[in-house]
Write a protein that binds this DNA or RNA. Structure first.
Length: 592
RNA sequence: GGGCGCGUAGAACAGUCUGGAGUGUUCGCCGGCCUGUCAAGCCGGAGGUCGCGGGUUCAAAUCCCGUCGUGCCCGCCA
C-alpha cells in the first residue's frame, strides 16, 4: 500500500524501477558509513531497501541512528556488479539519495531490532512496540491477520453468520474461575467476562441463526502456561440440524484453509480420528502427538504371575503395567533420577527403567526380580534392541498411561514444527471421577450423551458426543453435539449433583429457552492463538499475541493491573481487604 | 498452592561449583578515521546498587537465609 508520503514500499523496489525517481519512508535499520560513501537500510512493513548517499552532499546522513523514522527520495539504480545482496529481496538495486528527511528521531534503543538476539521477555514486553518491529514478530502479526481472514473467508463461503455476543455476562461458578467486573449501577453485583460464548451461541440456535461463528475473546482466570493467557481468542462456531460429522467436516475446512494460508500446504482431509480410548491406550494422552511412535504397550498379561512385588500388587488390585520403548537414549544415573522425578511429578509412585545391553540382557534395578521368561516377554512386547531404553509404569490405568504419555512427549517429541499432524479425538467419556471420588463432566454440562439410558444407568462408562481437535500434540479446541431437550439437561445437572434449585437459579433462564422448540445443534471452538503458534513454529502463545501478560498477569509496559483510587472503589461498592490495603499503601498507593 | 531454573553495564553472556580489588567477551552508545558495505572495518572512550534485604567471613557477584522479578512444569484450566 503506497500513498501520500511515498511512491513505493521499501521491500518492493525492483529492477523495474531503475532510473525512476522514488520516495520511500520507514525506519533506519543500519547505517554503514565508509567516509566518502555511506549506506543505510530503510525498513517498512513491506521489507528493506538500501540507500546510498555521499555524506558530504547529505550531512544529515551523519545523524541517522538506528530506528530513526525517515523519508528518502532518490533514483533507483542497479547495484554495481559484485555488490548485489542475494539475501535481500531488493538486493539487486539501491536508491541513490537526493533528499533524506528525518521524520522522527529515536532514542537509543533498549535492545536491537534483530531476530538473532534473544532478549529477556520482560524487557521485550516492556517495549513491546519495539519488539513488534522485529521481523519475526511482525511476521507473526501478519500471520494472525491472514489466519482470521482465511477463517472468515471460509465460513462466509459456507453461509455462516458472524454474530457478536456480550463480554459482560453472568458468572457461573462451574469450570474455570471467572474474571469478574463489579457493577457501578448495581453495587455489590458483578458481571463475569465470558469463558466462552457457549450459552449465547446455543441461544442463537434457538433464535434460528442455524449457522453461527464468532472470533471471540475469552477469559479464564487460571494460572498461566506457555500456551495459556488470561485472555485468548477462539473461533467459536455452532450450527443447527447437523451432526458431529458435519461439524468436523466444517472445522476441518477451516483448519485446512488456515494451514494453506500460513504454510502453503494442502492438509489431507478428512483428518484422522482416534477414539479417546485409543488415544489414551496408545499414546497416554487425550491430545496425542502423532509425529512420532514410541507407543504404549500393555505388559500386564505378560506379568500376571510375577513375583516382583510392585507389579504383583498393582495387577492384583486391578491396575495395569504399561511400557514404552524410548529407543536409544543417553543414559546415566542422573538421567534415571531425573526421569523418575518427572514420572512422580506426573502422578506415578515410581518408574521402572531398563537398558538393553549388547548381549540382550536387561540392566535394571528390578531385573533380578523378574524371571527370564518375563524379561523375554517384555523385550518382545516392546521390540527391544540392544541400546534401547525401556520405561515401565505400573499403576491404576489412568495414571499409568498418563505418566508414560508424559514421558513419551518429553523423550520423543520432535523439536521443530515443520510437520503438521492434525487429528480428531472422539468418543470422550461423558463424566470422569474427580479427586474426591465424585463425578464431574469431562467436557461441559451441555454436552449430549451418546445414549441417555446409558448415561442414567452407567454414568461411569457413558460416552459423550464431544470431540477435540489436536495439532502436533497441542489441544486446539473442542466441541460437541449439545443437549437440546430440557428434560435431559435437567437430568445431567442431577447426575452431576447440582441441586435442582441451584440449577434452576443459575440456568433456569437457559432451561426455559430450551422449552421453545430448540433445534438439535452442536458446534466447536478452537484457540486461534494456539493454532497460529504452531503454524508459525513458535513454542509460546505469547509470540503470537501482540500484547500478552507475564506469568503473574502483569503487563510490564502499562503496569496493569494497578491499584485504583478509593473513590472508584466507593462508586462500585467494593472495598479492599486489610492486607490488600496494606500492600497498596506499601506500593505507594493509588494513582491520581 | 507446589517444584525446578534464571537475575552481573542499555542488550546478550562468561565469571559463582572451589570466596581474595567490578575482571572479561560480543553488540549497542560517544569521539575519530575510512568511497562498495550489507551483523562493514580500524583506533580511542564512557558506561556496574553483580535484583533487593539480612547473615557467615579478615574478605561475598561467589556460601547461607529471606524476599522480589521472570521462565518452565505439577496442581488448576468444565
Amino acid at each position: 500500500m503506497v500513498e501520500g508520503m511515498r511512491t513505493h514500499a521499501a521491500g518492493t523496489v525492483s529492477v523495474d524501477d531503475v532510473d525512476g525517481l522514488v520516495t520511500v519512508a520507514g525506519w533506519v535499520q543500519k547505517r554503514r558509513d565508509h567516509g566518502g560513501i555511506a549506506f543505510f537500510d530503510v525498513r517498512d512493513a513491506s521489507g528493506v531497501v538500501q540507500v546510498v548517499a555521499d555524506p558530504d552532499e547529505h550531512p544529515v546522513v551523519d545523524d541517522l541512528k538506528m530506528e530513526y523514522c525517515v523519508s528518502v527520495t532518490g533514483t533507483v539504480r542497479r547495484r554495481p556488479e559484485g555488490t548485489e545482496n542475494p539475501d535481500l529481496a531488493t538486493g539487486l538495486v539501491e536508491i541513490g539519495a537526493d533528499d533524506v528527511i528525518v521524520l522522527s528521531p529515536s532514542r537509543t534503543l533498549p535492545f536491537m531490532i534483530d531476530d538473532r538476539v534473544e532478549i529477556d521477555e520482560r524487557v521485550r514486553l516492556q517495549y513491546r512496540y519495539l519488539d513488534l518491529r522485529r521481523p519475526r514478530m511482525a511476521a507473526n502479526l501478519r500471520a494472525r491477520s491472514r489466519a482470521t481472514a482465511a477463517i472468515r473467508r471460509t465460513l462466509d463461503g459456507l453461509g455462516f453468520l458472524e454474530v457478536e455476543t456480550p463480554t459482560l455476562i453472568n458468572s457461573t461458578p462451574e469450570g474455570a474461575r471467572d474474571m469478574l467486573v463489579p457493577s457501578r449501577l448495581r453495587q455489590g453485583e458483578f458481571y463475569a467476562l465470558p469463558q466462552s460464548p457457549q450459552l449465547f451461541k446455543q441461544l442463537l440456535m434457538i433464535s434460528g441463526v442455524e449457522r453461527y461463528f464468532q472470533i471471540a475473546r475469552c477469559y479464564r482466570d487460571e494460572d498461566f502456561r506457555a500456551d495459556r493467557q488470561l485472555e485468548f481468542t477462539q473461533l467459536d462456531l455452532e450450527g443447527s440440524f447437523w451432526g458431529r460429522d458435519e461439524v468436523l467436516a466444517t472445522i476441518e475446512k477451516v483448519l485446512a484453509a488456515v494451514a494453506k494460508e500460513l504454510r502453503g500446504v494442502d492438509v489431507e482431509l478428512p483428518l484422522p480420528r482416534l477414539t479417546w480410548d485409543e488415544a489414551m491406550n496408545r499414546f497416554g494422552s487425550d491430545k496425542p502427538d502423532l509425529r512420532f511412535g514410541m507407543e504404549l504397550v500393555d505388559l500386564t498379561d505378560h506379568l500376571t504371575g510375577t513375583e516382583f512385588g510392585v507389579f504383583k500388587g498393582v495387577i492384583e488390585s486391578a491396575g495395569t503395567v504399561r511400557g514404552i520403548n524410548a529407543g536409544a537414549q543417553e543414559w546415566s544415573r542422573a538421567r534415571a533420577d531425573q526421569l523418575t522425578e518427572r514420572a512422580k511429578e506426573l502422578g506415578a509412585r515410581g518408574l521402572v527403567w531398563m537398558v538393553v545391553e549388547d548381549d540382550g540382557s536387561l540392566r535394571s534395578p528390578v531385573a533380578k526380580f523378574l524371571s527370564e521368561g518375563e524379561q523375554g516377554a517384555i523385550k518382545t512386547a516392546l521390540d527391544a534392541e540392544p541400546g534401547h531404553l525401556l520405561l515401565i509404569a505400573a499403576d491404576r490405568w489412568r495414571t499409568a498411561v498418563e505418566v508414560l504419555g508424559g514421558l513419551r512427549n518429553d523423550l520423543g517429541r520432535p523439536k521443530g514444527h515443520d510437520e503438521l499432524s492434525f487429528l480428531w479425538v472422539v468418543d470422550f467419556p461423558l463424566f470422569e471421577e474427580d479427586e474426591d471420588g465424585g463425578i464431574t463432566f469431562s467436557h461441559h454440562p451441555f454436552t449430549s450423551p451418546v445414549s441417555i439410558d446409558e448415561m442414567r444407568d452407567h454414568p461411569q462408562g457413558a460416552l459423550s458426543n464431544a470431540y477435540d481437535a489436536v495439532l502436533n500434540g497441542v489441544e486446539l479446541g473442542s466441541g460437541s453435539i449439545r443437549i437440546h431437550d430440557p428434560a435431559v439437561q435437567r437430568q445431567v445437572f442431577e447426575i452431576l449433583g447440582i441441586d435442582s434449585e441451584i440449577a434452576e437459579r443459575r440456568f433456569g433462564w437457559f432451561l426455559e429457552a430450551l422449552e421453545y422448540g430448540t433445534p438439535p445443534h452442536g458446534g466447536f471452538a478452537f484457540g486461534i492463538d494456539r493454532l497460529v503458534m504452531v503454524l508459525q513454529g513458535e513454542s509460546s502463545i505469547r509470540e503470537v499475541i501482540p500484547f500478552p501478560k507475564t506469568q503473574t498477569g502483569v503487563d510490564p509496559m502499562t503496569g496493569a493491573p494497578t491499584w485504583v483510587d478509593d473513590y472508584q472503589l466507593a462508586e462500585l461498592g467494593v472495598d479492599l481487604t486489610a492486607s490488600s490495603r496494606a500492600r497498596r499503601d506499601e506500593a505507594g498507593g493509588s494513582e491520581g
